[in-house]
Design a protein around this nucleic acid. Sequence first.
DNA 1: TTCAGCTCCATGCAAACGCATAGAGTTGAG
DNA 2: CTCAACTCTATGCGTTTGCATGGAGCTGAA
Lengths: 143, 143
Amino acid sequence: MTPAVTRRANDAWEALLSAHARLIKDFTAEDIWREVSMREYDVLYTLSKCREPLRIGELHRDVLLSQPALSRMVDRLAERGFIERQPDPMDGRGVRLSLTDTGRDVQRRIGHRHARGVARAMTARLSPDELRQLETICSKLAH
Amino acid sequence: MTPAVTRRANDAWEALLSAHARLIKDFTAEDIWREVSMREYDVLYTLSKCREPLRIGELHRDVLLSQPALSRMVDRLAERGFIERQPDPMDGRGVRLSLTDTGRDVQRRIGHRHARGVARAMTARLSPDELRQLETICSKLAH
DNA sequence: TTCAGCTCCATGCAAACGCATAGAGTTGAG
DNA sequence: CTCAACTCTATGCGTTTGCATGGAGCTGAA
């Protein structure tokens, strides 16, 4: 690997990091996180994408939290009536998580408002073509 | 804004978020964070880029931490001898931060190893052209 | 010059985090 | 069948975080 490519890779990572930080700050500043924090929303959103109940371990692959932190967040969200924990009939160690009706409702409501903020921020800075490129490239990075 | 563009914007953001989470996890797993955590490194790195001492407020623009959290992280890093706080002669409220020699040394050492990990991860998934596109697009998002 | 309003950083405090580890359940070699 | 090794989730504990706020210093209109 040439020094030039190494340099380019690091510049790209630094830019990604800056973009992420900037956008997270912008989105956090939006006044829609009264019911759930952005991190909690992330969990609800991930669950909303799956028809079948998710194991905590599977959820952990998508969420940037340690397993214990995620376990406790699930505690709180269950306590508040947003998600439901059920023992996994296939595996006595496991837990199956699903949204409650309330949880699904909250996710949809917050999600709708959040999505508008995301669209506003992204389209203000990028062309449709750039949006497509970004998604393609980031998808490669994620897998 | 058409629904299709809104959709595209949200897909791009979701991909960016996934890529970020995945890479952060990968980099965190690297065995180079004995002396400083990745978040602490981020502060040292930001300071290393600036010739003149930085104000905490300026640092705060680059780092994804609340102002109080950053203030305390600076405390700890100063306590450990990595950075130096000096009163700002121009502004009695302000503090000017700079790396100590030790801090600069640690930043360089960790930075070198980290950069190799970054290059490895990024070039394994993206072509040089994609790296360039990613940097261009993310730079637009960051400003 | 004064002082109300602002900016900057630090601190009190409760919530949330990560690391290490425990406990319960699964799996596969013998 | 047995049991050592492994997987999955939860818990103990010290650290770090964010929110609310405090105190000191700046600034500009009166």
